[in-house]
Design a protein around this nucleic acid. Structure first.
Length: 244
DNA sequence: AAAAACAGCAACCGCTGTCCG
DNA sequence: GCGGACAGCGGTTGCTGTTTT
């Protein structure tokens, strides 16, 4: 793509830490008009800020549904497991942790979890023991980052031996209702359904959605809820699934 | 008590993906 | 099909508070 012009006139925008007054202006504007159109928001709200900066401030610190505070042990574990599967896809990971932001999780990973894993002798990038031969250690993470995920559930369990597929986690936090309702596809009365990996982790309609391409994660069994990554316990097959 | 080193995290930067004229 | 506008993402920076020397 061609280069882009700056999203705002830098000469007339503030940078750095936000003041209480700026926060208040942003909050009251969004309360009155809702999110969206970040480019025009600063002017409309009377802020000398770049739209991008406003968006970041709102999403990461001012949104009313943010949890803040220390991460729990459960959240730690979930982040580690999600990272082992998704790599540095912080926004996807954040989508599985209601009230947490991608920036917060990214910072937490880099400052706490990374160190914790290293102290346990685990490579935080590959999620494998640090002394393992390089060839073996290169497996899931590098594939996840740029290539192809090509391991089945049994392989994945082998790589993440403690991965509990019965974990109940929420779908993307945008929908509280989905938190309570099992994710269903196809006919609502069916005892089995299928959904692609992209849909299963809440990025429906994305280019990664492969529901129509026959690249499915088969889901079968009882109709009780969904579990890890929004899937019911069943056959996971990531073969041929391309990651960005 | 002061300086240096370290840790945590808010915010910025640059890039990509998508939409639309 | 092309290119500009925009939203969003991930990596990085740099400020601030805390700990160590």
């Amino acid at each position: 793509m061609m280069g882009r012009s700056p999203c705002c006139e830098k000469a007339h925008t503030n940078k750095g830490a936000w003041t209480k007054e700026e926060d208040d202006r942003l909050i009251s504007y969004i309360r009155a008009h809702g999110e969206g159109c970040w480019r025009s928001l600063p002017k409309a709200a009377g802020l000398l800020r770049c739209g991008k900066s406003c968006r970041l401030r709102w999403i990461n610190y001012l949104r009313p549904d943010l949890k803040r505070g220390n991460f729990t042990e459960d959240e730690d574990e979930l982040i580690i497991k999600l990272h082992s599967l998704l790599g540095n896809k912080w926004s996807l990971i954040a989508g599985r942790l209601p009230g947490r932001t991608d920036n917060e999780i990214k910072n937490y990973w880099n400052t706490h979890i990374r160190r914790k894993l290293v102290s346990q002798g685990i490579d935080p990038t590959t999620h494998r023991p640090i002394n393992e031969p390089a060839a073996a250690a290169a497996a899931p993470q590098e594939e996840a980052v740029s290539k192809t995920i090509s391991f089945s559930q049994s392989e994945r369990i082998d790589k993440c031996p403690d991965l509990n597929l019965d974990l109940r986690i929420s779908p993307p936090s945008s929908s509280q209702q989905q938190n309570q309702e099992p994710l269903k596809t196809g006919t609502s009365s069916g005892s089995s359904s299928t959904l692609c990996f992209a849909c299963s982790i809440g990025i429906q309609n994305s280019k990664d959605c492969s529901c129509r391409d026959g690249i499915m994660i088969s889901v079968s069994g009882s109709s009780s809820g969904y579990d890890f990554l929004g899937l019911k316990a069943g056959v996971l097959d990531y073969r041929s699934l391309e990651m960005k």
